[in-house]
Structure formats: structure tokens, C-alpha cells
């Protein structure tokens, strides 16, 4: 309903039919998302339309609500208002098209499961309620592990993997879900350089296949190198668009306030210019 309202709003503002096609074709469209924890607003009226087939960085300072944005948009945590659509349909009906990768510390790594067990969880929805998984699903999961270079660790208990390896297992699980939209919460947090490179390679391959990927990202230095689009948030929508246009010193200043030194900003800007 809210999506509909928002659509009307967009039409009134823009007065064009383009606004309609934009959100209906978007693999991930969020409108008017407001979230509060214990009466303290975390996100305020965030609207964002993700372009298809792009690698999108979600940027903002600590506590800006980046992770909350993903979780609330998917309906995984309660929200006060807002609607999410995937290709124009409500997200709850399109969950099989969406793969969500939580932060690594969101799960208990002492759990009695091996790497391939965890990847197979990505196939549960396809198998459905009550049914057990068999050899075919295991093969499928092994293929996903291979794609992230983790074949050798398939039968290792997950707690015995390094942080980078655990993150790769999570990525393999998302691959197994075979979605159109991938939402990743800080996949590069606490991983080694080799893993970071491996993950970004996999994400680029996915984008080439027309998938849309949104990544909560912390390291400002690598933004221009990794992402074709960015979404800057700090409690609210600050800016979004192609990295070259939206990832500007002005917008960063708005998002980070005084937390970013001006020398840092200059450095980032010059690296952005180089990318162009």
C-alpha cells in the first residue's frame, strides 16, 4: 500500500511515466522505510531504488542504520513503516529471488555443522518444509563451495575455519540460493586480503550475469574501486547514484559530519577522479 502511495507521490513530483517503470523494474525498491529501536529512530523515511545489474555499496558511518536498512527492508526485523518491492512485487512474495548474507558474528560458529552443511541451508527453501536433503543437494552445495575456492574445507566444522573462510562459506550459501538480488552485510569485515579479493571477484561475476548486489561497506578507500553505484545513508537517505556522481566530498561530509577529516576527503576524491 505504501509502495503504491509512494509511486503516486513520485508521479506527482516527476509527473512522468518514467518514475513508474523505475521502481517496477527495480530488483530492489524501498520506499519510506522508518525503523526505531526502543522509540529511538534508526532510519527515517528512506527511499531507494536499486538499478539492476549493478554492484552497489551502502556507505555510512557507524550506527547510520546500514545493517538495519537491509534487515528491515527484508522484513526480518520490525519496522514502523515502509514497503519493499522486488521487480514491482512485495518482497515477502519474492523471497526466493533474494539472498541475504548476515554479518559473520550473527551466528554461533560452534554449531555442529560443516561448511557444506551451512551451504546446503541455502537450498532449504527450494526443498521445502519437512523434506530432507539428499546427495543431489550436497553436490549442488559443493559446486557453490568450489566457486569460492573452499572445496578443500567442505567437511570442516565451521568453527575451525578462519574468519575469511567463514565469510566465503556464507557467500557460497548465497550462491546456492541462486537469487537475483544479493544483500550482504559487511562481507569484508575481518577477512584477509585474499578473501576480500576472492569475494569481489565472485560478486563481479554475478553482476556480469545480471544479478544485483547491495553490500554494506565500511572501508571508504575501496569504494570507488569496488562499486558502480553507492547509497549513502546516515539515519536517512543522503545520496545515491553512480559512484562518480554520488560519492562526492560534499555528500560524504553530509553523511559523516565532522567525523571525516578534510584531508581524507580530498584523498578519496582524487582516487574517485582516477577511476573516472
Amino acid at each position: 500500500m505504501a509502495a503504491q502511495d509512494n509511486y503516486n507521490l513520485q508521479q506527482n513530483e516527476g509527473g512522468s511515466v518514467q518514475a513508474e517503470t523505475a521502481w517496477k523494474d527495480s530488483p530492489f525498491h524501498v520506499s519510506g522505510l522508518t525503523v526505531a529501536y526502543h522509540h529511538k529512530p534508526v532510519l527515517w523515511n528512506v527511499t531507494y531504488t536499486a538499478p539492476k545489474g549493478e554492484l552497489i555499496g551502502i556507505i555510512g558511518p557507524n550506527g547510520a542504520g546500514k545493517s538495519t536498512f537491509l534487515k528491515a527492508a527484508l522484513g526480518l526485523i520490525p519496522k514502523l513503516s515502509g514497503e519493499t518491492t522486488v521487480f514491482g512485487k512485495p518482497v515477502r512474495k519474492m523471497m526466493d529471488k533474494v539472498a541475504y548474507v548476515p554479518q559473520r558474528n550473527a551466528v554461533d560458529w560452534d554449531f555442529p555443522a560443516t561448511a557444506v552443511d551451512v551451504v546446503m541451508m541455502g537450498l532449504y527453501a527450494k526443498v521445502g518444509w519437512f523434506r530432507w536433503l539428499g546427495r543431489r543437494q550436497r553436490q549442488e552445495a559443493l559446486k557453490s563451495l568450489e566457486a569460492v575456492g573452499m572445496t578443500a574445507f567442505a567437511d570442516r566444522q565451521i568453527g575451525q575455519l578462519s574468519g575469511g573462510q567463514q565469510q566465503r562459506v556464507f557467500l557460497a550459501r548465497a550462491l546456492a540460493q541462486d537469487a537475483d538480488v544479493y544483500l550482504m552485510d559487511e562481507p569484508f569485515a575481518g577477512v584477509d586480503a585474499a578473501t576480500e579479493k576472492a569475494i569481489i571477484e565472485v560478486l563481479r561475476t554475478l553482476v556480469k550475469r545480471g544479478k544485483t548486489i547491495l553490500v554494506v561497506h565500511h572501508d571508504l578507500e575501496s569504494v570507488t574501486q569496488y562499486y558502480s553505484h553507492v547509497l549513502l545513508i546516515n539515519g536517512q537517505h543522503i545520496a545515491s547514484g553512480p559512484t562518480a556522481e554520488a560519492f562526492t566530498a560534499e555528500n560524504l561530509q553530509k553523511a559523516y559530519g565532522g567525523r571525516l577529516a578534510s584531508t581524507q576527503l580530498e584523498g578519496l576524491q582524487s582516487s574517485a577522479k582516477e577511476q573516472e
Binding site: L76, V98, P102
Partner: peptide
């Protein structure tokens, strides 16, 4: 026996369980 995989998933990763419809 009926809900082994569902219980395993929900115990390990509640957010994924939720997003997969379990």
C-alpha cells in the same frame, strides 16, 4: 524427524530461516 532441517536452520541462523520462509 519431520522438522530436523527447519529446526537446525532456525537454531543456527534465525535471520536466514526467516528470509527463507521458515
Amino acid at each position: 524427524l519431520a522438522l530436523f532441517k527447519e529446526l537446525k536452520l532456525a537454531s543456527f541462523d534465525a535471520l536466514l530461516a526467516q528470509s527463507l520462509g521458515f
